[in-house]
């Protein structure tokens, strides 16, 4: 039985700025399985936030989804498939607005600024409920209190009338989660939800999220650059570099036998307290200027294993095992491609 919730095929999101076109997401393939957690990992600026915003069509101007498909199966689990393509929807249209906040919802990185200080927490949660359900205001309020209680906010019946700026960062992020869950979404997108929190709060929020994921049986798309968080929460991992998914597999394979040199370097850069005090081992070089992307494999200027062909050939996806794929010439039989491309 096909258990796919969202199937992203060759998604491209480009930003049309005055200085030129930035290819923030440049041909991404992703499959989100129902009830599973996919973690999207990468350095700042690799396009992971843009990619997940594209799933809800809330990419900021001047960004546009220019190609690809986002096939969303909105049918009930195990029931009749009802597949629609989000990529083709008008970002301002009613169709996508009915999905946002109801079937796909999102929590953001900055709990301090993601809630408006002008309205109470309750107001902002109830707004989402009233928008997508037929509940009355009183019922919506009761539901909001129930949700706040569920995400571990003490005295939820009183804090529902509190303004966000009177809550701590962790409490705000909990409120955001309550808001995102208010309509029982199929997919929850979390864009670095713990980055702005301190470490203890981080752990609490992560626990909360994986608990809620089980009880709501929802799919979780978790964006982060923190590999510690990935190890804790993810089922599958997709590693992103300069708008492309360079390696994709289950969490154990990624941590135990990473294949792409970028993934290997990322894992090596985690400081290990247990072993020995030595210098940090960062990935050498910087993420390239988005306007001057390197030709060939985008990672070759920083890659320790690069060879001559890496400068000219763009690697395609190589399936190593059924659930492990990588975009790297080390694993690709590219001899044929050189021949065909030279003919052209």
């Amino acid at each position: 039985m096909d258990n796919t919730l969202i199937d992203v095929k060759d998604l491209k999101v480009h930003f049309f700025t005055d200085e030129g076109v930035v290819r923030a997401v440049d041909g991404v393939d992703l499959k989100l399985e129902r009830g599973r957690t996919l973690s999207l990992v990468g350095e700042s600026g690799c396009g992971k936030s843009v990619a997940c915003r594209a799933l809800m069509q809330i990419v900021r101007n001047p960004g546009k989804v220019v190609a690809g498909e986002i096939l969303y199966n909105r049918g009930a689990e195990g029931g009749q498939a009802e597949i629609i393509d989000i990529a083709k929807m008008d970002p301002k249209g009613k169709e996508i607005r009915d999905i946002r906040g109801k079937e796909i919802s999102m929590i953001f990185q900055e709990p301090m600024t993601s809630l408006s200080p002008m309205y109470t927490v309750g107001n902002q949660i109830i707004e989402n409920i009233l928008l997508h359900t037929n509940l009355t205001k009183e019922q919506a309020r009761d539901l909001a209190i129930k949700l706040l209680d569920q995400v571990g906010i003490p005295r939820a019946d009183r804090l529902v009338d509190e303004y966000p700026f009177r809550l701590s960062g962790g409490m705000r992020q909990r409120s955001m989660i309550a808001m995102a869950l208010s309509c029982n979404p199929n997919l929850l997108i979390a864009d670095e939800p713990t980055t702005a929190l301190d470490v203890t709060t981080q752990a609490n929020i992560l626990d909360l999220m994986s608990d809620l994921q089980k009880s709501y049986n929802m799919t979780l798309l978790f964006i982060t650059h923190d590999l510690g968080v990935v190890a804790e929460i993810a089922d599958e991992v997709a590693v992103m570099y300069l708008g492309k998914i360079v390696e994709k597999s289950d969490v154990y394979t990624i941590f135990n036998s990473p294949r792409h040199p970028y993934t290997q370097a990322l894992l090596k850069s985690i400081p290990k307290i247990a072993i020995k005090r030595e210098d940090l081992d960062p990935i050498k070089g910087m993420v390239p200027n988005p306007f001057r992307r390197p030709g060939g494999c985008p990672f070759h200027p920083r890659c320790p294993q690069a060879f001559a062909e890496c400068k000219v050939l763009v690697p395609t996806t190589t399936q190593l095992t059924p659930n492990h794929s990588v975009q790297c010439l080390l694993y690709e039989n590219f001899a044929n491609r050189i021949a065909t491309e030279q003919k052209q």
Partner: peptide
């Protein structure tokens, strides 16, 4: 207009006019 709370409001599925008036204009 580019504050995070505007993005939050948009991700709820509010119409552009409603979210404009309730959030950034109010601020």
């Amino acid at each position: 207009l580019n504050k995070p709370y505007v993005e939050t409001a948009r991700s709820k599925g509010l119409t552009e006019l409603k979210l404009l008036m309730k959030y950034p204009v109010r601020h």
